[in-house]
């Protein structure tokens, strides 16, 4: 079986986590030429509710498109942490928003905390880019695609006027994650 790497982004609907998953899948499959499948599940609400997006990355074809044993997971809210920070493999990675998740999910994984929403609001000036901060952080923590591929995929996705903002957000998340690793 081809080696799979499974990443799950979770949070509240409207936080852009499906977009974060799409950007990661673009980076892996279109820019780096690997196989990638991005999928999602969400409730009927347009905003709020727990939402998740999963990306499976492999060198060969991917059959089952959903997560089996999650290598790395992001949870932006307590509800999403309770619901989706499960099935993470031993030694895997869990990244939590430091302000919005109080109760740590239990498991034998490496736990990291980062004030993602606050960083987006205070350091970048726009809460809306929290998903891109989170994406930079997840790429930094996992190394599943290169920083360059991640950044290029972000820039391909956003309109010209928002490229600088998103580039800053991506790099902030990436650099901060490297600090967490050290």
């Amino acid at each position: 079986m081809a080696e799979r790497y499974e990443i799950r982004f979770s949070g509240a609907g409207g936080q852009g986590l499906i977009t974060a998953g799409i950007i990661l899948a673009e980076a892996a499959s279109i820019i780096e030429g690997k196989s990638a499948v991005q999928s999602q599940s969400y409730g009927p609400e347009a905003r709020g509710g727990a939402s998740k997006s999963e990306v499976i990355i492999a060198d060969g074809p991917i059959d089952y498109p959903k997560a089996t044993i999650v290598d790395a997971c992001l949870a932006m809210t307590q509800e999403s942490a309770d619901k989706y920070a499960v099935g993470i493999k031993d030694g895997g990675i869990l990244l939590l928003d430091d302000d919005f998740v109080q109760k740590n999910p239990q498991g034998n994984f490496k736990l990291y905390r980062m004030p993602i929403m606050r960083m987006a609001k205070e350091d970048i000036g726009r809460e809306i880019v929290a998903n891109v901060v989170a994406l930079g952080a997840m790429i930094g923590l996992t190394g599943v695609v290169s920083k360059e591929a991640g950044e290029e995929a972000v820039l391909r996705k956003v309109p010209e006027a928002f490229k600088d903002l998103n580039k800053k957000a991506f790099n902030l998340g990436y650099e901060k994650s490297k600090e967490l690793l050290n």
């Binding site: 799409i22 499959s29 196989s35 990638a36 499948v37 991005q38 999928s39 999602q40 498109p65």
Partner: peptide
């Protein structure tokens, strides 16, 4: 699942 998932 296939309707909403993304692949190359």
């Amino acid at each position: 699942i296939v309707g909403h998932m993304r692949e190359r």
